[in-house]
């Protein structure tokens, strides 16, 4: 197991995959923050007055984290932020499910017509949390990943 975690190729593939996912997710939200704000508000978790601040800033953190994972610059910090965001998203989804609100995830698409299953979104987020973990503990270096 340890051998796999420290395998530079394996780590590089994970970095590219997560960078792609987060850059893709960030892009749609950055070009239309108002639509993303609506998605956030539908969760009824963030206070209304703070929704727009969240919608404006969160996608940029996603984008920076994506760049960090891809380039390896501040890679470890980016990986940890990725994990923290995934935990946050999963908690938000679980609260939405337990409140029974009829919403869409807003994870990638802000189109309310795109109806997915929130449960599947949770499963996806948990899978991502598992697969980002190697990036938190790997000792592999290379491909510009220099951070301790």
């Amino acid at each position: 197991m340890r051998k796999l975690l420290d395998n530079p190729q394996f780590i590089l593939v994970l970095r590219i995959v997560f960078a792609g996912i987060f850059l893709f997710a960030a892009f749609g939200k950055i070009i239309d923050p108002a639509a993303f704000a609506k998605s956030i508000n539908n969760y009824h978790i963030v206070p209304g007055s703070l929704v727009n601040i969240f919608a404006l800033t969160l996608p940029w953190v996603e984008a920076l984290v994506g760049i960090g994972l891809l380039t390896g610059i501040w890679g470890r910090a980016s990986a940890w932020l990725t994990q923290l965001m995934l935990i946050m998203f999963t908690i938000a989804l679980l609260i939405a499910i337990s409140n029974g609100v009829n919403i869409t995830c807003g994870c990638f698409s802000q189109n309310p017509e795109v109806k997915g299953s929130l449960t599947m979104d949770v499963v996806r987020d948990i899978a991502m949390m598992i697969f980002v973990t190697p990036l938190l503990i790997t000792k592999a270096r290379g491909f510009c990943w220099t951070e301790e």
């Binding site: 704000a37 727009n52 601040i53 800033t57 940029w60 984008a63």
Partner: peptide, 25 residues
């Protein structure tokens, strides 16, 4: 720092992106 830089970029986006909402929702 990443969060702070991201927040600053969000503020910039507020002023350059016509689709950006106001700071207060």
């Amino acid at each position: 720092f990443i969060i702070l830089i991201g927040s600053a970029l969000g503020v910039v986006n507020k002023f350059v992106n016509p689709k950006a909402p106001g700071f207060i929702g």
